[in-house]
């Protein structure tokens, strides 16, 4: 299958300031990709280049066979964007905003607007000026705006910024469901790593103006996590510093931390423990996205 997006050797500078250099990047159709990087790493500029509103200095980009520099409008017809600032008209009502953007994107299905207002819990507020909306309501409306024309590709720049925990949960679970139902490819920029962990299929790390690593969580874990730290809630009380040759130490009541070479060794460790003890819970401490992110950065900045 051909990739949905293929970027080869893209660079961009604003004056003397290099923002992106030699970026190589691939996104498969139907995938949700998390684009990670510190603030100011160039994530937003990269999304803008993909959308064809900023011209790269060099390199080639293909999005479903279209080049954003030459066929930007074609790409914009099948892609939706949620920007950090939401980009809504504050003087217009929620419904008027959707109606305006529906015209721009040539949306013919008149039921789409009430459907989206209902879906994002905005039906009650559809007649109010967007300027009076809370940040969460604006974000939800911006997401509705981006989905009006049922895009094949969604660019989401910090879509959960300013949302409360309920809002974050609602938006992320909706995005996951939408991706599952429609197969829409999504690129989500964020620096809140734990939010992306559960919904993204793969991740790309933007560091020092370039994509330094890209892959699924399993691929990244295999590459960067060389020992697995496991926290086990058990009544086993270690009398030695090793069990089955694996280092262990008690860190409190009923809690033992093991350091294992791979996660494949966990079942044998548990079998051994369960022979004489009870095990209440097992948790890998160092394979979350945040740990991988810092490992990647550590390696790059070595």
């Amino acid at each position: 299958m051909n990739p949905m997006i293929e970027v080869v050797g893209v660079s961009k500078a604003f004056g003397s300031q290099t923002v992106l250099r030699d970026v190589n990047f691939k996104v498969e159709p139907g995938e949700i990709l998390g684009l990670l990087g510190p603030n100011g790493a160039g994530k937003t500029t990269f999304l803008r280049i993909l959308n064809g509103v900023i011209k790269p200095e060099s390199g080639s980009i293909s999005i479903l066979g279209y080049n954003p520099v030459e066929n930007g409008d074609e790409i914009r017809k099948f892609s939706g964007v949620v920007t950090e600032s939401a980009g809504l008209y504050h003087q217009m009502s929620g419904e008027e905003n959707l109606a305006f953007f529906a015209e721009l994107y040539g949306v013919k299905n008149k039921r789409k607007i009430p459907e989206l207002l209902r879906l994002f819990d905005l039906e009650e507020h559809k007649g109010k000026a967007v300027g009076t909306y809370s940040t969460g309501m604006k974000k939800r409306l911006a997401l509705g705006k981006a989905l009006l024309h049922e895009p094949k590709l969604l660019f989401l720049d910090e879509p959960t910024n300013g949302l409360d925990p309920d809002g974050i949960k609602m938006v992320l679970s909706y995005l996951k469901k939408y991706n599952k139902d429609t197969g829409t490819t999504m690129i989500i920029c964020s620096h809140v790593l734990h939010q992306l962990e559960s919904i993204c299929d793969s991740f790309a790390f933007l560091e020092n103006q370039t994509i330094v690593e890209q892959g699924t969580k399993n691929e990244l874990e295999r590459k960067y996590i060389h020992e697995v730290i496991v926290k086990i809630n058990t009544n086993f009380a270690p009398t030695e510093v090793h069990l089955l040759g694996f280092p262990c130490k008690s860190t409190g009541e009923n809690t033992v931390i093991f350091t294992l070479p791979t996660k494949e060794t966990i079942p044998s460790l548990l079998q051994e423990l369960l022979k004489k003890n009870a095990v209440y819970s097992v948790e890998i401490m160092n394979n979350d996205l945040e740990s991988i992110y810092f490992k990647v950065r550590e390696k790059i900045n070595e």
Partner: peptide, 14 residues
Amino acid sequence: ERRTLESLLFSPVS
């Protein structure tokens, strides 16, 4: 100033 130009330029408006 209203930060809506970005939305217009991201849409398929020539």
